[in-house]
Amino acid sequence: MANLSSFASSLFWATFKRDLILAFRHKGDMVNPLVFFLIAITMIPLALGPEKAVLMRIAPGIIWVMALLATLLSLDSLFRSDFDDGSLEQLLIAPYPLALSVFAKILVHWLATGLPLTLMAPLLGVMLSLPANAFAALCYSLLLGTAAMSLIGAVGAALTVSLRKGGVLISLIVMPLYIPILIFGASAVQTAALGEAYNMQLAVLGAGLAIALLLAPLAAAGALRVSVNA
């Protein structure tokens, strides 16, 4: 039994470490969503005018929407290279629960995109003159929200991995599923900006993350089995 569990942890860790190395070797994949995030946010004052009151009002929503779009952009690469080089097949037939190794991949995806997005968000908050008391809420909500988005997005990425042009389709099928996260995430920041308590929104985001943790790896694993069969 101990043997089995040490074995069980090893493919999870091997996949985790391998993907982490890959993420650092393909820095472009990691940096591009961040650059997109930055440029897209810069567009807002250019389009609406630099009036502080306006920017302050819309900053929570805009930052959240842009973070969501940046996450969407990064999803297509989640399983793509594994599918193209054949290692996805190997993952599928390995004597190891597929949902766990998929979870290792999602974890790396979040570390490589969701976490940097979260860390970068305060900077963009300054650019959009977000009220000072909303910065903590911005970070907490994005921390939980990007993790849930990586998990849910993985299902979309797994469903479309065998399609040559899956990029737009992923956005189409995943975006509606992101709506609750967006509502509560943006609301947390907005509420904080008004100086009120935002515990409730964070609790809901946490609950959403818990459900996603439970179900998304399983659904993504099932979707991968279907996709690889194509």
């Binding site: 080089d85 097949e89 037939i93």
Partner: peptide, 29 residues
């Protein structure tokens, strides 16, 4: 079972050793 598919299942940005280390984990170290 050892399956070697039509696609070799080798990551081009990893070294041969790193590639094999992952396969070693697939069969338990």
């Amino acid at each position: 079972l050892l399956y070697l598919g039509h696609l070799p299942g080798i990551k081009k940005s990893l070294t041969p050793f790193e590639n094999l280390r992952w396969y070693a984990a697939v069969q338990g170290g």
